[in-house]
Design a protein around this nucleic acid. Structure first.
Length: 423
RNA sequence: GGAGAGGUGGCAGAGUGGUCGAAUGCGCUCGCUUGGAAAGCGUGUGUAGGGAAACCUACCGAGGGUUCGAAUCCCUCCCUCUCCGCCA
């Protein structure tokens, strides 16, 4: 959510920033609702003030005295008015609030202009993609692939996009997750194992509601949402809380399965491990002082990059343009690994600074050291990392002529062997 | 799932219809005191919204209701605790 005062005082600035994201936002409607909300609020407050004054006066009068009864008669009318106007106020307030929730976050000045993924800026490229086998195949074409990654039975048991991981397939997922969590721990992130269902308030606080209503799975009985990322429960850990400034930055890492309906996806994007309805991911979270948040974003991205470097995967860093960065982010980097078989880049991580957008919705603040008023923190998060696409790249890039996959040295202690076999 | 108890400020804990944003204690702030500290004394100490300001308003788990007036009475929901049941 944006600061209502900013919208009120600098609507043109807000309008321009939203335009940079190429999103629709009816700022005029927000401004009109804001103005009428304030007018009605002042109305109601004046009436309430009158009620309170009468209340004090009546307390001093003998009950049942003529003066008392006269006051009661007089205040009945005021009471009716308050009731009526409060109803109107609440209605306009909820419409105003709803309109505010539908406004996207403002992009940082360093965010490049642009509308589509083609307009993203390649910030850096690491590793060589030429050295990789020119006749590598897409991972789903590797002989024996379906033995380790059983999509057919997953589709039978649950639906498309819910594979079974079997044998070495299951072991490599577990090895990657443990590697990711251990590395996060070394980098100073406290490990958290969060709930994988959240309530509507939590989904709203991080900006997934109302923006991504149709993209999440929801339980029938309780209306809970299956988490699309560990970001959702983790960010909400401190919802409605005030953190000591001395505790900042707070750094946490959480693993959860992630559930996404992926309505509207199609084509080669969804082949094999490229896009699933359920996948495993470790998410890195930071709650930071506003004055450091862009430094922390760079560090966060480097933490994620370090994982790809240790895994020996070529990757590139994209700085997302305004039109491709999402609703809630102020600045976002994506990391994409090269998948030699598909000959394309796969997104395995995105690191974002949300500034106060989530913190305001979630009311996450810190108490300044000097004891002043609580201020909103900046929240950041980044994947570290998502398993299936990292796995896809490992399979495609490291496939040996004998049909086995040579694992990077860092994974060997976790996996227990140097090679993964499809037999 | 059944029965009961309860949710008040950073914490503890009063308050059962009016002058209560809320006694008191602890904690914390600042000051006095002291060689320094402790004790003692005094002072201050929630969050948010509106307003140029003076100031006004809201908030006692959440939401409704009754009333001229609700922390207090009524209803619904959420959460915590105890006992029973059921179980990984």
């Amino acid at each position: 959510m944006l600061d209502p005062k900013l919208i009120r005082e600098s609507p043109d600035l807000v309008r321009a920033a939203i335009a940079k994201k190429h999103l629709d936002a009816d700022l005029d409607a927000v401004l009109a609702l804001d103005a009428s909300w304030r007018a009605q609020l002042q109305d109601v407050e004046a009436l309430r003030s009158q009620q309170k004054a009468a209340n004090t006066a009546m307390a001093a009068l003998p009950k049942g005295s003529p003066e008392f009864l006269a006051k009661v008669a007089e205040m009945k009318g005021v009471s009716a008015q308050v009731k009526e106007r409060e109803t109107g106020l609440k209605e306009i307030e909820s419409r105003w609030h709803e309109a505010l929730l539908s406004l996207p976050n403002l992009p940082h000045v360093s965010v490049p202009a642009g509308r589509t993924p083609d307009d993203n800026v390649v910030h850096a490229t690491h590793g060589s993609i030429e050295s990789l086998s020119p006749d590598a195949v897409a991972h789903w074409e590797i002989p024996g692939f379906e033995r380790l990654f059983d999509f057919a039975r997953g589709a039978k048991v649950t639906g498309a996009g819910f594979p079974f991981y079997v044998g070495d397939g299951a072991r490599i997922v577990r090895a990657l997750l443990q590697f990711f969590l251990d590395e996060a721990g070394k980098a100073g992130y406290v490990e958290v194992n969060p709930p994988i269902f959240v309530n509507a308030a939590s989904a709203t606080a991080v900006g997934q509601l109302p923006d991504k209503e149709g993209q999440m799975y929801q339980t029938v009985e309780d209306g809970l949402y299956a988490v699309p990322t560990a970001e959702t429960p983790l960010t909400n850990f401190f919802r409605d809380e005030i953190i000591d400034e001395a505790a900042l930055p707070v750094k946490r890492a959480g693993y959860t399965p992630c559930f996404r309906r992926e309505a509207g996806s199609y084509g080669k994007d969804v082949r094999g491990l490229n896009r699933l309805h359920q996948f495993d991911k470790v998410e890195l979270l930071k709650w930071v002082h506003p004055s450091h948040s862009y430094d922390e974003l760079e560090k966060l991205r480097l933490d994620a990059e370090g994982l790809l470097q240790k895994l020996g995967l070529p990757y590139r860093v994209l700085l997302m343009c305004g039109g491709d960065m999402g609703f809630a982010q102020a600045k976002k980097y994506d990391l994409e690994v090269w998948a030699a078989g598909q000959k394309r880049w796969l997104e395995v991580s995105s690191s974002s600074n949300f500034e106060t957008f989530q913190a305001r919705r979630a009311q996450i603040r810190f108490r300044p050291k000097d004891g002043g008023k609580p201020e909103l923190v900046h929240t950041l998060n980044g994947s570290g990392l998502a398993v299936p696409r990292v796995l896809a790249a490992l399979l495609e890039n490291n496939l040996q002529p004998d049909g086995r996959v040579k694992l990077p040295a860092v994974l060997v202690p976790y996996f227990g062997r140097e090679e993964l076999s499809f037999k």
